[in-house]
Amino acid sequence: MSGHSKWSTIKHKKARTDEKKGKEYTRIAKEIILAARSGGGDPEANSKLKLAIQKAKAINMPNDNINRAIKRGTGDLESDVIEEMNYEGYAAGGVAILLDIATDNRNRTASDIRHLFSKHGGNLGETGCVSYLFDRVGLITVNREDVKTDEEEFMLLAIELGADDVREDEDSLEIITSPESFMDVKEKLELQVKIEYADIVMLPQTSVEITDENIAAKILKLIDVLEDHDDVQNLYSNLSIPDELLEKLS
């Protein structure tokens, strides 16, 4: 797992304020709207919408909010026009950052994101400047302590169910799938073990290790402010930070 992923895990374990929860609801609502707009309002016929609804329920988003978001996506309720796009850039130390954006005002968002990159020692780049460093995959994470069978048997089972690879981390197993087989593998694995995390992500092909404390702190600050921006749906990076430094910074 990349340093950025571990940093996100540390942050998510901290108590969420009402403001943070509200931002989470807004982010997932946008995801539901976009999924329903592109693939229809039936989650059984729209895997993207099905996954978005699962995420909403995982953070206890009220059903009324979920249903309103679906109706906004299908056009049954009025909604602002939301555009999807990707922004790419570099943080300090040459760390690549890739952003999924959902906005109703692309000029405002571009200005905001450019300012945040610049303020925190990075720079917003052109389309394609870092995306080639990432692969779009399905990622399913399982805590090792939740695997009740032999780990090697579980890893073989995941491959038999359609996973492309299984990677070992200190506390977890990461199951990698193609985007197309992701939902099928996820639903089959859920019958076997508790799933900690599951989503379609942009996985870095290689990582950039940062060992300088000041540079690492600057990068993590940039990641924090970008993730807190209302129009940023997802943030991916190829950041790697040694565990001892990450713990110190947290």
Rank of each mutant, 00 (worst) to 15 (best):
K6V: 05
T9S: 14
D18Y: 13
K23Y: 03
Y25D: 03
R27V: 02
R27F: 09
E31G: 07
A35Q: 00
R37I: 01
D42F: 05
P43W: 03
P43A: 08
A45E: 11
N46R: 09
K48R: 09
L49Q: 01
L51N: 01
L51C: 00
K55M: 02
I59Q: 00
M61T: 01
N63W: 06
N65A: 14
I66M: 00
I66S: 00
N67Q: 14
G75M: 03
L77W: 05
E78V: 15
S79N: 06
D80M: 03
I82E: 08
E83G: 04
M85T: 07
Y87C: 00
G89T: 01
A91E: 04
A91D: 09
L99K: 05
D100I: 05
D100Q: 13
I101K: 02
N107H: 15
N107W: 09
S111L: 15
S118Q: 13
K119S: 04
G125D: 00
G125I: 02
V130R: 12
S131K: 11
I140T: 05
I140Y: 12
N143W: 06
N143E: 10
T149M: 15
D150S: 14
E160Q: 13
L161A: 05
L161K: 09
R167F: 04
D169T: 15
I176M: 07
I176V: 14
T177M: 13
S178A: 07
P179S: 00
S181P: 05
M183Q: 15
V185F: 12
K188H: 02
K188M: 08
L189G: 01
E190D: 07
L191P: 01
Q192I: 07
V193Q: 08
I200Y: 00
V201D: 07
M202I: 05
P204M: 08
S207V: 15
D212W: 04
D212F: 00
N214R: 09
A216E: 11
A216G: 12
K218F: 02
I219D: 03
L220H: 04
L220W: 01
L222H: 10
I223A: 12
D224A: 08
L226S: 06
D228G: 03
D231T: 11
D231F: 10
V232W: 03
L235P: 00
Y236D: 03
S237P: 05
N238R: 03
L239M: 13
L239A: 07
P242A: 08
L245T: 04
E247H: 13
